[in-house]
Write a protein that binds this DNA or RNA. Sequence first.
DNA 1: GCACTCCTGACCAAGAAGGTCAGGAAAGTC
DNA 2: GACTTTCCTGACCTTCTTGGTCAGGAGTGC
Lengths: 153, 153
Amino acid sequence: MRVSAKADYAVRAAAELAAAQAEEAPVKGERLAEAQDIPLQFLEHILLELKHHGIVRARRGAKGGYWLARPADEVTIAEIVRAVEGPIAHVQSTPPEDIEYRGNSEHLQAVWIAVRASLRTVLEQVTLADLVSGELPSVVGELTSSKDAWVAR
Amino acid sequence: MRVSAKADYAVRAAAELAAAQAEEAPVKGERLAEAQDIPLQFLEHILLELKHHGIVRARRGAKGGYWLARPADEVTIAEIVRAVEGPIAHVQSTPPEDIEYRGNSEHLQAVWIAVRASLRTVLEQVTLADLVSGELPSVVGELTSSKDAWVAR
DNA sequence: GCACTCCTGACCAAGAAGGTCAGGAAAGTC
DNA sequence: GACTTTCCTGACCTTCTTGGTCAGGAGTGC
């Protein structure tokens, strides 16, 4: 139940690309790495994965770089996380809907399904456009408004 | 963003203990392992962790075994997951409230906080008593009622 | 032709995941 | 007191993941 460095990096780099979308010119990997303080060579691997998933595009050579394949308001955080981390909320590496629980843990499946659904309500709602503008969907506002949400446990 | 085998096992074993709470007698590790089809020796390590976190108690020897340290309706899934997996929804191994994001990813912190909060709304609501009775809190019902929640993406 | 930038695979160290093994230490029974 | 039972603990193991680095190849633009 943790967010990997890779996923964090991927979203941050994508946020930079979203912000640069107006410029109409590719952004170099180096600039992304500097802007978000990410090891360049590691970032290049991540960007490649995002490219393979159709989230970003790239061109080589002088004047080359990366850009978003789609408008920033059509790319969700969930997509990016899935691209680099794989499916969200799998249990023992299998999707919760495929697991069969017996005995007294019969209803655990519903709990894991609910866990996944709750993650989706956040990650699939927030787009890169939301992220860079700071105008996050109301669901985020509701979840973060309580003081309690900001303290560890 | 995945649930480990260890966490899954821990919850399932705890569910068995919750169901056996009426019996007023300790449950052997072996019986738990068989009931939930968990490798016994691995399970013993897990139960030991749960014991160290004050979730279960144990006694050795003949007539020994494990039992819940508290009533089943006072033990949440969140507690069990934390006991074996550590803090929920950490980013790069640090709690989201401690991360500082710069540039265009400034609002990413709020997103991760929301992610954690949404996990908490499920995991901290569901108790072992809910789990074994099948009467899950309304939040779970709402999240799992949609057909969409049960399909992969 | 040359500089620039992405693309790709190989490699690597450390840690986690998912266990197994062997023995020790309480608790109860005879 | 011996013996069985069951938990307790640490050591160990294999495989995979994480978080990178390195070296070179392949397009692209001038």
